[in-house]
Design a protein around this nucleic acid. Structure first.
Lengths: 260, 260
DNA sequence: CTGGCGCTTTCACTGGGTGAAAGCCGAAGC
DNA sequence: GCTTCGGCTTTCACCCAGTGAAAGCGCCAG
């Protein structure tokens, strides 16, 4: 048999639901718009199948189809997605605080939560005169490099930490921590200090200072400032970020009764 | 009220996809967390069916299941949703401008697009010392009352305008425009002036000033300031909002090549 | 005119989906 | 302790929604 396929293999007999979800999976920040055949190729499903499923998704609003025939994620899906618990309570409560932080510093302000072994950026205020950051809202990133990542990892369940420490740590710059033992010491220091500094560990021009956001059960999110590394004084910024973290923590604890 | 809602009726033989989407539909700002039986009741589907579909959605991350057994929208869905075209390009470009507007005024800044016969709030900066607004990001609202709504409606395709004008116009306050002929005149005035003012037409304490965001094809979004009606000077605010709208328009036109 | 590409529709077959019913589990009541 | 009850999970035999090869369509380039 010719072995020239590259995309996801189509397991015969996969459930309809998984097909629908596979279609959504095909979209990514790098490929936010796909033609029918691209979708078919990426999901490994026959073209007519993709056609029918996609048509249903378009009818509901989960996908949109542009004049160019390409499919995109639909506004309706965004709408439903914004009901995600962290999208809701946390984001709404944190945004005013992030604005304050931005107004004081005019630097990039970021808010992230951990999901599995990665972090997801929930919100970001991108200072127009600040260093450009390559992350985007809704984007994922490794836990071991960014400021928010270090905070989230430092306060994650032990098993999560072990899994991250066991896997190879990707290197982004020459300052990225890739030695598990050094990372372990770094995490201990983050817990002790109550904040994390990532100095040029993601890009060589930026430095970030991050602080945890806590509920009684533990740390649910992290907030950070990203600044140019050569005009940065992490020690001066830390109290600001920590204070912001505490304000959001307090707001969260007051607001949410039962569920996070 | 409306506590007795039967939710969506189950047509026998509806497609699996529609069942999956019906599950997502069951979630709303008012009901962001649902038990299995609530889901079954709201969608009109048998409990085992809901159980299986929901399990698949949880496995993928479209839903999450809390310790309390309730289902919530999952972070993964939010992540995919944030790839929606308006969620992406527009929001990212508009946010810095919205921040500037907030910094100058310290009032609520809102960004909305039209979807069908309603508007959807894409982004909002809620001034902590400004009037509280009841809308939320990801939430929908009628087109005929708010400032953004009037702008979006005034520049919507004729058929959309006719549909809105033909349907009964819900009254929110005694100042809400509910007479189609008056609304029609109002829309003409919005087009002429290049901005819209909604004075106490949604709540009796707030007033909003909105301006369009344009691409060559037409108006794709609207930006607005919401302020306390008694300290408002719409005529003074209008140029600010219009300027913000123009800045975003320009950014959009530069950034987006092929697709909006 | 022809060939190629990408999308849409058809059609007969089949296995994933169905839902009634039975099992399970923990909490509240006796 | 035992029982009931409500809500969740699993089973099972039936069957129609979904399937995908193949044919049809529309468009553009050569």
């Amino acid at each position: 048999m010719g072995g020239d396929d590259d995309g996801v293999r189509a397991e015969p007999g996969r459930s309809v639901t998984s097909k629908v979800l596979a279609l959504l999976d095909a979209f990514s920040p790098a490929t936010p718009a796909l033609t029918l055949s691209e979708l078919a190729r990426r999901t490994g499903m026959p073209l007519p199948t993709v056609y029918r499923r996609a048509a249903e998704l378009v009818a509901w609003g989960a996908l949109e189809r542009g004049d160019d025939g390409r499919y995109r994620i639909g506004l309706r899906l965004w709408e439903v997605g914004s009901l995600a618990p962290r999208g809701l309570g946390l984001r709404e409560l944190a945004l005013p605080v992030m604005e304050d932080l931005y107004e004081v510093t005019h630097e990039n302000v970021q808010l992230a939560v951990r999901q599995g072994l990665e972090l997801v950026f929930i919100e970001r205020i991108a200072g127009r005169h600040a260093v450009p950051v390559l992350t985007r809202v809704g984007g994922r990133f490794a836990l071991h490099a960014t400021g928010v990542g270090l905070v989230l990892l430092a306060h994650a369940p032990a098993e999560v930490q072990e899994q991250v420490l066991a896997a190879p740590l990707e290197r982004y710059t020459e300052l990225t921590i890739t030695d598990p033992r050094r990372l372990r010491r770094c995490l201990a220091e983050v817990r002790r200090a109550g904040y994390a500094v990532s100095d040029r560990q993601v890009t060589m021009d930026a430095l970030s200072v991050a602080a945890p956001i806590r509920v009684p059960e533990g740390v649910v999110a992290a907030i950070s400032l990203v600044v140019a590394h050569d005009r940065a004084d992490p020690v001066a910024l830390a109290p600001l970020v920590q204070a912001a973290g505490r304000v959001v923590s307090r707001a969260l604890n007051n607001a949410t009764g039962p569920a996070v």
